[in-house]
Design a protein around this nucleic acid. Structure first.
Lengths: 193, 193
DNA sequence: TAAACGGCTTGATCTACATCAAGTGTTTTT
DNA sequence: AAAAACACTTGATGTAGATCAAGCCGTTTA
């Protein structure tokens, strides 16, 4: 159950046997069916989630009812509405499962206790958050600097796994374009090679 | 020279007198004229910057030569191309001064040394990066979920200081729209109230 | 095993915003 | 103090991508 999480942490910092025991004690395991929510708009994001297995998405729904994908997370990824989780304010986002999933969840209180009791976790999360900032910055630059077709080809070049595992309509939403436009772009790219 | 930085850190964590001395020893002060570069596309981002005074911008230039604002930073803000700074790869971004500025700069080696010698700084940067993630997430959601006019009114509501201090054409670029469109939006909003 | 639904495609039409261009006031440079 | 460069505006025109609509599988669901 903790295999993926412990491997992920030990790539970045060293944990003692007691660290591992303490760490395990703070997490709640949870299984999810496809389409099941972990967080719904209007609720507070009570947990920081780690995906041991499966695939989640976080998305925002605008006034017209259109979904906008914020992030995907599969094995080895963390997910939460960071703002809601840390502030305790209600979330404007939704998180649900695209594939059946197994999660490890930690509350804010336990997260803070973990950082105090296992100080190397400060370093682990600092590094994790650094990497998160880098990928968010890249995503933003792609979103504001390129055309629909360029955005797609750049995603295909840098994140091919995403295209294999995630339905096209969700990819379209992630890129900020309609499924129709993505379909046409792909058709055009198929022809040209 | 260190007033703003120390105040900023001590809002989040407690520093001893020796911590403060060590910390100061790791930073290089630098003064910048308006329009002066701190980072140019093609160079490595050698420093993590803290703005003691003045105003900087980080931006990306696409193939057509159009600038896309990634971030602004004034008194009390950190700035760097996080990816280039941490990886040592060349940067695709530019950082320069919109107003004359006074900076405190730290190299990656010194940044890492600082984290080891003053361990509470791990916590400080973890918190800082958390907040950075939150604001980047909000920015992304605004960028992909709303029309040009909505993006502008939302920015005006949440970051009015930005509109007062930063030229309109840079605001337009930050919102991912043209200066002409922003000008028309503002005209329309003026009328309607 | 029939029916309902979800994901993808293709075509016709529409529109928000970009682009191009020209003019005005203001700041910077020489 | 003149000239050049910059920031902003306004108008005319163009277009990438959205929207609307219909049809085609493949897969859940009853």
């Amino acid at each position: 159950m903790f295999d993926v999480l412990l491997a992920h942490i030990q790539e970045k910092v060293t944990l003692s046997a007691t660290d591992v025991a303490v760490l395990k004690s703070f997490f709640i395991p949870k299984k999810l069916r496809k389409r099941q929510y972990v967080l719904q708009e209007g609720d507070v994001c009570k947990y920081l989630l780690f995906v041991e297995k499966g695939l989640l998405r976080m998305y925002h729904v605008d006034e017209k009812g259109t979904e906008h994908m914020i992030q995907f997370a599969w094995e080895g990824w963390w997910m939460a509405d960071t703002y809601s989780f840390l502030s305790g304010d209600v979330s404007e986002y939704n998180i649900d499962a695209i594939e059946d999933a197994e999660l490890l969840m930690i509350t804010l209180d336990n997260f803070e206790a973990l950082l105090l009791q296992v100080p190397v976790m400060e370093r682990y999360f600092r590094i994790l958050f650094q990497n998160n900032i880098i990928s968010k910055e890249k995503r933003l630059v792609n979103t504001i600097s390129y055309s629909a077709e360029e955005k797609y080809t750049r995603l295909a070049a840098t994140n091919p796994q995403l295209l294999q595992r995630i339905p096209q309509n969700l990819i379209a939403s992630y890129l900020g374009i309609t499924p129709e436009t993505l379909s046409r772009i792909r058709k055009k790219l198929m022809k040209s090679k």
